[in-house]
């Protein structure tokens, strides 16, 4: 198990991967990927019990679902760095005949991906279904899911929130990336649903926690606390405050970097702010 410093180092390398992948593909979504890098690193290197020798059913493992599939560069980097597939394969991101599709998919059998995502608002339902299957199978491990905050504008999420509380699906921990940004602007400008997510989700019957998505110790502590609510009759929802583009100075907090690739000079400037900690692919 990695300690905090090691986790931070991995997260830095993951961020380098993200920037280099999106730059290499000349397309992709760096903003949200960078913002969730600390969280997903913590999840795969500390929080979850999981097996990189991938099995689709994830029996007796914790399993993770990425609903906001556009942050695939992050997902792929973390999977590769956890041993699911060769790190060198990251260079094929978004290219023809690659297993690393623009948005995560199962058709190319990339280890670590259990369902396609990218068309937003669907991952929560799938994750809840997988949690129900774990209960039916007597599997005590948990289901984790990550979704975007803009994504919660999709109505299916509210169906899923209602269902999970009604059916007491208390073996799932869902995290929302509360960065306040979406393609067309801030979530408050585009569709003002963001400032009282806690009240809304709590009213649906979920247990709510808050987390600082850029404080590794806080992530570890909050995830540990979340686990104490497992099996108590309520699904668990973590509101994770992040900054899109963190920590690149010219990207932080701006929706402009939601879905565009850095130029050569952008990449150079960004990587200079992230000294390599492991090894670039």
């Amino acid at each position: 198990m990695a300690d905090i410093t090691q986790l931070q180092q991995i997260a830095t390398q993951v961020r380098r991967d993200i920037l280099r992948m999106v730059h290499g593909a000349k397309s992709g979504h760096p903003g949200g990927s960078l913002g969730c890098a600390d969280f997903l690193t913590a999840l795969y290197f500390k929080v979850m019990k999981h097996n990189p020798d991938f099995s689709m059913n994830g029996k007796d493992e914790d399993i993770f679902f990425l609903s906001n599939g556009h942050i695939s560069p992050l997902f792929y980097s973390v999977l590769a760095r956890s041993g699911y597939f060769p790190i060198q394969e990251l260079k094929t991101f978004r290219m023809l005949n690659s297993r690393l599709q623009g948005h995560p998919a199962t058709a190319e059998h990339l280890p670590g991906v259990r369902v396609a995502s990218g068309s937003l608002g669907q991952g929560l339902s799938v994750a809840i279904g997988a949690a129900l299957a774990k209960k039916l199978n007597g599997d005590k491990q948990l289901v984790y899911a990550l979704m975007g905050d803009g994504e919660i504008q999709e109505g299916q999420n509210w169906e899923a929130l209602m269902f999970a509380a009604h059916h007491k699906v208390d073996n799932i921990i869902v995290t929302i990336d509360y960065n306040g940004q979406q393609i067309d602007g801030s979530t408050m400008e585009v569709m003002g649903i963001g400032n009282d997510i806690e009240a809304k989700v709590k009213a649906f019957g979920w247990e709510i926690l808050h987390m600082n998505g850029h404080d590794m110790q806080n992530i570890i502590d909050t995830m540990s606390k979340a686990k104490t609510f497992v099996g108590k009759g309520k699904p668990i929802f973590i509101i994770m405050k992040t900054e899109m583009g963190e920590p690149i100075d010219f990207m932080v907090g701006s929706h402009k970097w939601h879905g565009i690739a850095p130029s050569d000079s952008d990449l150079e400037k960004a990587l200079a702010q992230l000294p390599s900690t492991l090894e670039d692919y």
């Binding site: 689709m56 259990r114 669907q122 279904g129 997988a130 129900l132």
Partner: peptide, 10 residues
């Protein structure tokens, strides 16, 4: 979506 998730769990 639930059905897809349940299918993942066999």
């Amino acid at each position: 979506g639930l059905a897809a998730g349940m299918a993942i769990g066999d």
